[in-house]
Design a protein around this nucleic acid. Structure first.
Lengths: 385, 385
DNA sequence: AAACTTTGTTTAACCAATATACAAAGTCGG
DNA sequence: CCGACTTTGTATATTGGTTAAACAAAGTTT
């Protein structure tokens, strides 16, 4: 839809600019905000006054003088409200209660005995209710719920989640009518990408590729600092990228899909002599030097590298973050992965590219999901030219 | 850089909105522009008056009444200036003189005997001078030059063009100081994508993938109606995506790259019994039913399908346009390509996705390159929330 | 203690969009 | 053919945001 501009829009843009400047650079004075944004001091003063009245910004008394009047220090008021972040996995539900700055106040886990929608919804509701009850008193209370789901999502609807057997579930609508709070639904990899972007290994990166490698592979794509969701929410389903044209058949109907070679799906091969079938246990065997396990992780690392190379050539990100369950195996995957990428990418890519593993670990996704809810609450408006 | 908002910005946004609304929906009255944009009638009147004074919009007399006063018809003044669009290929330089609406006024071809930079620059300068001399008189004259280059481009600099042997060439700087006119440099596939998006098979598509298949493969990626260039201009180098993990070695240092299986590079295989080594000639043999050629095109079509499937899973575009020299072979490539994509993509993709071949043919790239220059001249400012 | 610095607020001016009224130019029904 | 209605486009006064400039407040430096 076309957006027209008027004075109200001007105010919204500048207020949002000031709020996020304070949020990301606190502690900071009005004068510095004025410098950083380029807005007039008077404008900053007026809008900060409104933000204080809204309790989104607090004044924390005078700071150090640098040769003149002491500045009045401003903080983003992360406790103006709370959000709930949820990660839905095949066998587990994880939820956190966060402040508006990604600080975890409470964390809950809940194993899932099944994954039919009615059962999962029941568990989810009970976890949410529990966290809502524990939320500290605050001006705005619970301002949103963010959910990360292992599947394709468009506009709050879970279009298709193969590992759960869900199809066309209006998760946002259902949760919103249950709790009467704004709900955001994201793909699990997208949530992880948001988490690392804002609170983890990828702060201030403009073009990020987050690879969630676990029971399958999904990617969260950040372009120009923003999540790219594709035409209808299907972007980032990179696990089904072909890397062997005549490779193994996949349940998706294609052949040679990346996730058949570089995810936990590789554990299912009956021909392998692996001592375990979960990443956690395999990591323990790797620590004790089990050769079969070391060999298997090396192979996964190499195949991860092949897929990552393909994505580098398409997206040319500044940074790649590997997350998901397999990131626990970083010590054994990292070397082969980086080696293959170095061998196969175009020379120019090598200069600029960094590859790291998740810094937030398993918390990245829940925090990212919660952050979506925070951004929905705070708003985020910008001008592009 | 942060952009602050003030009244000047408001005016810029609305004026740009009105200009582009007229450009895309002419002939149109002030009243209809007001309806379409949501701007007040008075605002439209004022800004249209300014646009008329700038000669970017013209009033074309009264139109048909629909029960009241006759509307005054407005047109975008495509002849307010001209641009030059250039496509640089390994063996050929193509250039067009266009009006501001992509209408071709003059077209020039020039074979390239070599492709060292000094020689190519000389040819380019002489072609440009020739077209400038032929430009019709207009208020703004030549308002820009747009060039499409077979290589990676960032901020006007050709970072790397393997097929030309160029590296770090400041093409924009050089052309701007020669002709004292704004110059835009784009990757050849990106220019083609822009051409199809604005004047060809992909009008009004929001997420487009343009595949330029010729001597190599490159992709132009349009996200949300805008060109996505990646972190440093390398995005879309999809020809070097691995589709056979242990496949043929490629000059890029990797193995099994897509363009080894699905571009004109396949003609070089000495083991093949092809009667020719250019797409144009092979198409003639295909028309006469040569079995080897039919077989080879079918293979290229299938491999194109594999790579396209990968890109679909990553980008989830609404539309895929196949351009470049190989698009001439559409009758033989289209079937196998669509079949493989149908076999291999996730079920949900099939519902929304369309695959077409270039509608502008070889002109798509030059026109797209010229269009970049037009947009640079007109400006394009929007609000994102 | 006087001069200078830095911070934040007040004041008046400016300017773009808007609602409203209005003028101009048409259609349509009897 | 005339009066009522419609549609288009312009003029006017109002609103409300940013801004420059002056100013007030509270420091530091010499």
């Amino acid at each position: 839809m076309k957006v027209t501009a008027d004075q109200a829009l001007v105010k919204k843009i500048n207020k949002s600019l000031i709020l996020h400047t304070i949020r990301m650079h606190a502690p900071v004075s009005r004068a510095r905000v004025s410098e950083m944004t380029g807005l007039n001091k008077a404008t900053v003063s007026n809008l900060v006054a409104e933000l204080c009245a809204q309790e989104l910004v607090t004044e924390a008394g005078p700071g150090e003088s640098s040769g003149g009047r002491k500045p009045l220090i401003l903080h983003f008021n992360a406790t103006a409200g709370s959000v709930i972040g949820i990660e839905l996995r095949v066998k587990q539900l994880t939820a956190v209660l966060c402040d508006l700055d990604g600080g975890v106040l409470q964390e809950v886990d809940c194993p899932l005995a099944a994954h039919d929608f009615p059962y999962v919804l029941e568990q989810m509701k009970s976890i949410i209710s529990g966290l809502i009850a524990q939320a500290p008193p605050s001006p705005y209370g619970i301002v949103g719920i963010g959910v990360g789901v292992p599947g394709m999502v468009d506009d709050g609807i879970v279009l298709f989640a193969p590992n759960l057997g869900w199809e066309m579930v209006d998760l946002r609508g259902i949760l919103e009518s249950s709790f009467e709070v704004p709900v955001t639904i994201d793909n699990e990899a997208n949530a992880g990408a948001q988490g690392e972007l804002n609170f983890g290994a990828a702060r201030d990166v403009r073009h990020l590729l987050y690879i969630s490698a676990g029971s399958g592979i999904g990617s969260g794509i950040i372009i120009g600092g923003e999540l790219y969701k594709g035409a209808r929410g299907y972007a980032g389903e990179t696990g089904h990228m072909t890397i062997e044209a005549q490779g193994k058949p996949c349940s998706c109907g294609s052949r040679g899909c990346w996730e058949l070679y570089a995810s936990e799906k590789t554990y299912d091969n009956p021909g392998l002599s692996l001592p375990a079938r979960t990443t956690g246990e395999l990591v323990r065997h790797a620590i004790s030097g089990q050769p079969d396990v070391l060999q298997h992780f090396a192979s996964i690392g190499e195949y991860l590298g092949i897929g990552v190379t393909n994505l580098i050539n398409s997206f040319n990100p500044e940074l790649i973050v590997i997350g998901g369950a397999l990131s626990e195996a970083e010590p054994w995957l990292g070397g082969p992965l980086r080696r293959v990428v170095a061998e196969r990418t175009l020379p120019y890519h090598k200069q600029q590219l960094e590859i790291t593993f998740s810094r937030l670990g398993s918390r990245g996704t829940v925090i990212g999901a919660g952050f979506s809810a925070v951004m929905h609450f705070l708003g985020n408006i910008r001008v592009t030219l």
